Amino acid sequence: MPGHRDGWGAVKTVNKMLRLNSRDKNTLLRTSFLSQLGPTAMASMMEIANISNFEARDVLFREGEPADCFYSVLSGYVRLYRLNKDGREADIRICGPGDTFAECLLALGDKYLYNAQAAETATLARFDLQRVRALAEHEKDVAKSIIRCLSDHLRATMDCIANDRLQTAPQRVAHYLLTHCETEGGPAAIRLPFQKSLLAGKLGLAPEALSRAFSTLRRVGVIVRGRTIHISDVSALKQI
């Protein structure tokens, strides 16, 4: 399957198919789509899976292109976004290891609904839509898994909309930090697994809005040094 280098217009061929190593297999087995499948359905899905590497900024597909597969992230991060006619980008979701995307097309649709770009070097499993649809006709576990994934995404979308409307930018950042903090009180340090620009997209913020939010959080002891975020008092952050 071809990839594209955003901003350059050149077409780049994806690396040849890879073998599924034990780490990637464990990640794949933990995805919401595969984790509850029975042995027969699981074996069929693993047979369908094609494993590929993508480099940072490779475009997996573009909005409106014919859809032939959905994806599961095994390592790295993938950015889902849309563009308006003026070229302005809006992030929809940042997908990390264990996340799947474009599986909504299993139920309905033959064109991709957004753009997908590797945010950094990533290993992905690709599943042919037609083969999975055919499998779902005979394997109830696969059909149930499709329904479960669609339900999970609907609930996540509702939570995202609610947070956008109920939380300020500093509150969104504070909530993210608290959910990734291993201590209940006192000082803590968190290292972001990706660039701050991706964190902005994940939280539905423009990069400049994220910077302002971190500036606001300095008064409760949040200090940013590269990808490492130091929190002087977790309890104080909870009061934001």
Rank of each mutant, 00 (worst) to 15 (best):
Y77N: 05
D128C: 10
K12N: 11
I161L: 14
L129W: 01
D86C: 06
L106S: 04
P207C: 06
T183Q: 11
Y81L: 02
S52N: 15
V234E: 04
L129M: 06
V173W: 02
D68F: 00
I51W: 00
D86G: 11
V234Y: 04
S75N: 11
L166P: 06
R79Q: 10
R23F: 06
R212E: 08
G76F: 00
M45K: 10
C160R: 12
V132Y: 08
D91L: 01
V14S: 12
V224G: 04
S52T: 14
L29A: 07
L166N: 13
I161N: 09
E65D: 14
S72K: 02
N15A: 15
A188N: 13
D152K: 11
K25V: 05
A136E: 09
G64Y: 00
H175F: 07
L18F: 00
H4F: 15
G96M: 04
G3R: 11
V234I: 12
E47V: 06
S44N: 14
G9F: 00
A169R: 06
P39R: 12
R225W: 00
E137Y: 00
E184D: 12
P187N: 08
D233A: 12
V132I: 10
R62T: 11
R62D: 09
D99N: 10
A125F: 01
N53Q: 13
C95K: 01
L203H: 03
K202N: 14
M42T: 14
E47G: 15
Y77R: 05
E184C: 04
L150Y: 00
E182T: 13
T121V: 00
D159A: 09
E47K: 15
M45N: 13
M17N: 14
R148N: 13
S151T: 15
V142E: 08
L154N: 08
L192E: 08
V173K: 02
R126T: 15
T123I: 06
H175I: 06
V142A: 03
A169Q: 09
R131T: 11
M46W: 01
T27D: 03
A174D: 06
D68I: 02
R82Q: 10
